[in-house]
Design a protein around this nucleic acid. Structure first.
Length: 423
RNA sequence: GGUGAGGUGGCAGAGCGGUUUAAUGUACCAGUCUUGAAAACUGGCGUAGGGUGACCUACCGGGGGUUCGAAUCCCUCCCUCACCGCCA
């Protein structure tokens, strides 16, 4: 969430910035400012009373020790009166503070100055494009037909076992999946990301830390008996490694990569959009996460974008990078670049990666700080990106690399992982 | 799942209603000494909110309660450890 001090010092900037999200935050910000005044006023009143009470209580102890019981009892009733007043002020304070933090939780991050205005996907700005879109032969098919013919992904049996959106990868399909995971992990390792295998279930505090909670619990699977959530992305457990942590500046940056399955409840839209591998409830992803010094975070964002670029390039997929507009920007992000690969047989772009800088939005919730020399701790910046999400990469590879003989060719970089060069 | 023991500063560890403003040790930082280091000694050493400042306030797993006063007593939730059971 945003820092209160930042909101107070940059009121206009915050309101202007949030307009890019098509959000009229003026009344909300105003309410926060007013509540903050009330809050501070109440705190100082409570603290004055408390200081007085503390002092008198101490004196009572001394009086009893000296045997002046009468005086002590007299003082007791005085303190009792003070405490009564204090209690009702404190109750009010609790109420104010609950409302205050609740409001803060509901304000999204302020978009970076380079975020374009816009409401829909179409308003995202393409900033980069690379690779030739192949001309497919007449008999080219979408991936859902190909995988069925070759029996490498079985959607129907997945439906029986779990439901729609839980495919079974089989034989060479499973092997290709595994190859992609290992390729992505090796590439991340080469770029200095330290691999972790995190828990796939997270508690409420972790969900709040990275911004999935409150309010967005509907997007996650929830295990009722134990009150845990299945991770929607490795971002959540990996970033939460640093919840309530104060790092020293020479420990920055922290770079992590993790392969995990991801679970999303999101009830997709319909038809072509959700067919085959386009949208799943369970999918595999390799994530990269960084915790960095605030001065570097935008340079690091570029570095992460370059890393993802390298991956798609090596796979030989035509791709483009979009700068997300305010309307399409995630709740917690300040700036996001989406990667899309071109799926020839479907004749459309498929999102395969989202690389974002959250600035201090997550670290403020996480209490993720670092200390520069002997200075007071300050909030670090967090970033993350998919590098990459598997299913749509798989879909694009299968569609773009099909030849007239009905074979699907495996990109060279993957062959040492798959052990075969075509399917 | 059962039984028992616990959760105190970076770590170790005392305190179990009122000189706790949380002892002590250790780690760390600075200084003295030293050619330098070690040792010894001296001082400093948590987070957050408020005040120009001396200072004030909160925090001993979380929340609530008893009391003039709670790390200490009570309730509740969470977590850790040990043993038993079950199990990959």
């Amino acid at each position: 969430m945003l820092q209160v001090k930042y909101i107070l010092d940059n009121k206009e900037k915050v309101i202007e910035g949030l307009k890019k999200r098509n959000l009229d935050s003026d009344p909300l910000i105003q309410e926060i400012i007013e509540l903050n005044i009330k809050r501070k006023d109440r705190i100082s009143k409570v603290e004055i009373l408390r200081a007085e009470g503390n002092k008198m209580s101490k004196a009572i102890g001394d009086l009893f020790k000296k045997g002046k019981n009468e005086e002590a009892n007299e003082a007791k009733s005085k303190v009792q009166a003070i405490k009564g007043e204090q209690k009702s002020l404190e109750d009010g304070l609790h109420e104010i503070e609950n409302k205050f933090t609740d409001l803060l939780y509901h304000i999204p991050n302020v978009p970076h100055e380079t975020v374009p205005t816009g409401k829909l996907e179409e308003d995202n700005v393409e900033i980069f494009r690379e690779g030739d879109i192949p001309n497919l032969h007449e008999s080219a098919k979408p991936h859902w037909d190909i995988v069925k013919e070759k029996d490498i992904i079985d959607f129907e049996t997945g439906v029986k076992i779990a439901g729609a959106g839980f495919p079974i990868y089989k034989g060479k399909g499973a092997r290709l999946q595994r190859a992609l995971i290992n390729f992505f992990l090796d590439e991340a390792d080469n770029s200095g990301y330290h691999e972790v295998i995190p828990p796939l279930l997270i508690n409420e505090a972790s969900g709040i830390g990275t911004g999935q909670l409150p309010d967005k619990e509907g997007q996650m699977y929830h295990t009722v008996a134990d009150d845990l959530y299945l991770i929607p992305t490795a971002e959540v457990p990996v970033t939460n490694i640093y919840r309530d942590v104060i790092l020293s500046d020479d420990e920055l940056p922290k770079k992590h990569t993790a392969y995990t399955p991801c679970f999303r409840r999101e009830a997709g839209s319909y038809g072509k959009d959700v067919r085959g591998l386009n949208r799943l409830h369970q999918f595999d992803k390799v994530e990269i996460v960084q915790v960095v010094h605030p001065d570097n975070s935008y340079a690091v964002l570029d570095e992460m974008v370059d890393h993802v670029k390298g991956l798609v390039r090596k796979l030989g997929l035509p791709f483009r990078i979009l700068r997300l507009c305010g309307g399409d920007l995630g709740f917690t992000a300040a700036l996001t670049f989406d990667f899309e690969v071109y799926s020839t047989a479907q004749d459309r772009w498929l999102e395969v990666s989202s690389v974002s800088n959250f600035e201090t939005y997550q670290s403020n919730r996480l209490k993720l700080r670092f200390r520069q020399g002997k200075d007071k701790p300050q909030l670090a910046h967090t970033l993350n990106g998919s590098a990459l999400a598997l299913p749509r990469i798989m879909a694009a590879l299968i569609e773009n690399n099909q030849n007239e003989k009905g074979e699907v060719l495996i990109p060279e970089v993957l062959q040492k992982y798959t052990g075969f060069d075509k399917m």
